[in-house]
């Protein structure tokens, strides 16, 4: 499940924040914030995508870098949400 989640998140980030540019490396631990890929606007887009695509409910308190700053953290966060 995590691999499929990772692929979907990666595809979403490439399509929406890199405008389809796949030439840049996008490792699991790359900070989306420090690399200016996600800002306050982008995070709302990402949260809406996660809620709709993975059918999980995200609370406001969940919207923190610890859960959403890297692809690895996002995948782990979605997995945790699904368990609950």
């Amino acid at each position: 499940m995590s691999e499929a989640t990772r692929t979907d998140i990666r595809t979403f980030i490439i399509d929406n924040f890199l405008f389809g540019d796949e030439s840049q490396p996008l490792p699991d631990d790359l900070s989306l914030i420090d690399n200016d890929l996600v800002d306050s606007t982008g995070i709302l887009e990402l949260v809406s995508f996660i809620e709709e695509h993975f059918e999980v409910k995200i609370e406001d308190a969940d919207i923190v870098p610890a859960n959403l700053d890297t692809i690895g953290k996002i995948v782990a966060f979605i997995d945790r949400k699904r368990v609950h």
Binding site: V38, S40, I43, L44, V47, I63, V64, P65, L68
Partner: peptide, 17 residues
């Protein structure tokens, strides 16, 4: 919102709430 570097998602959370 202040201190964007410390918590870049603060504005998004406020608005969503």
């Amino acid at each position: 919102v202040d201190g964007h570097d410390d918590d870049p998602f603060a504005g998004a959370r406020l608005l969503r709430d």
